[in-house]
């Protein structure tokens, strides 16, 4: 992928421009070097990630309960029964719908806010950048307990700050966390607030590779700030945007902490998420079933990620 160099390399060729054809030996050396670079990662990864993954995948096809964990192979293989049971479970279906709602609204919102903040801090202002950067990052590092207490206060029906502000303009604010229709929007607001800081610092890193002279040249040609953002910044930021949207998407599809501390999945299961339901099943000791739920989440995440890769396609 060569989008950042001014004259794009001719398609289908990975050779150095003007350097002539690379020899076989050079290609072999490159492969060897690549694997040397990959080796430490691969070793650690194999032992501490892949092996547990394979084990848990096996578990998802069995009727493992917590009492079987001492003898993990001493269980019945029940094929896809856990999976069919999951799709028949009305609470899990509701959890899937809730999660879809959360992701479809939450991810675009978070990305937009993060990008806006990053662009504003990168070039929009000249002073106090460090202060704003630090400030916008504090939600990420604030303890979830404090976050929960303050947000409950903000969302309170009678004296909460949000409803007080709404009352100034004559709006009678809802019972945010107590009303099944408003509980999810409340959590989306909260999640956006908590997570845009991470996206922002990654965007800030990505913005460093946008050549500023292009902006200057375009400005001389009379392009507006929006046009320059749309036609210069956005295309150059593509790998970074892909990265942030994929990781935010993965995080949000597994969202857990907000309902866990704010609503316990209520009222009336309106905020229970797939991950929270899975976590509960682990707590009940239904390891096989919980593992199969995890892999359902995994497949959904994989599909969504593949779509994101397609949409923000890398031309390699």
């Amino acid at each position: 992928m060569t989008a950042t160099t001014a004259p794009p390399a001719p398609p289908g060729e990975t050779t150095a421009p003007g350097g002539g054809k690379r020899t076989r030996a050079a290609a072999r050396a490159e492969g060897r070097a690549a694997w040397i670079l990959a080796l430490p990662f691969c070793l650690l990864f194999l032992v501490f990630t892949l092996w547990p993954v394979v084990q848990s995948l096996f578990m998802s096809f069995t009727d493992t309960r917590s009492r079987d964990l001492r003898t993990p192979f001493n269980v019945n293989v029940i094929g896809l029964e856990n999976y069919t049971r999951a799709f028949a479970d009305p609470v899990f279906r509701q959890a899937m719908a809730n999660t879809a709602y959360f992701v479809l609204v939450g991810v675009p919102l978070t990305l937009t806010v993060a990008l806006a903040a990053a662009v504003a801090l990168n070039r929009g202002i000249s002073k106090l950048r460090g202060v704003f950067r630090l400030g916008f990052y504090t939600p990420v590092i604030t303890s979830i307990v404090a976050v929960a207490v303050v947000w409950r206060f903000l969302l309170e029906t009678d004296y909460g700050l949000i409803n007080t502000a709404l009352a100034w303009v004559g709006i009678d604010g809802p019972n945010w966390l107590g009303d099944p229709n408003w509980s999810m929007p409340s959590l989306i607001m909260m999640a956006t607030w908590r997570n845009f800081g991470t996206g922002m610092i990654i965007f800030l890193a990505g913005l460093q590779s946008v050549p500023w002279h292009l902006h200057e040249a375009a400005a001389i040609d009379g392009a507006s700030a929006w046009q320059r953002f749309r036609h210069i910044t956005l295309p150059m930021m593509r790998p970074t945007i892909l990265f942030v949207s994929v990781t935010t998407g993965i995080g949000y599809l597994q969202f857990f902490e907000e309902p866990y501390v704010m609503t316990s999945g209520g009222p009336l299961n309106s905020t229970i998420s797939m991950s929270m339901y899975t976590y509960n099943q682990f707590g009940f000791g239904n390891y096989g079933f919980a593992a199969s739920l995890s892999y359902i989440i995994f497949v959904i995440v994989a599909v969504v990620t593949a779509i994101q890769f397609r949409l923000l396609r890398e031309n390699d």
């Binding site: 995948l57 096996f58 096809f61 009727d63 079987d68 192979f73 001493n74 269980v75 293989v77």
Partner: peptide, 11 residues
């Protein structure tokens, strides 16, 4: 890997 493991059953 899953298949080789699946030979075992519950006591």
């Amino acid at each position: 890997a899953a298949l080789t493991l699946s030979a075992c059953g519950r006591a």
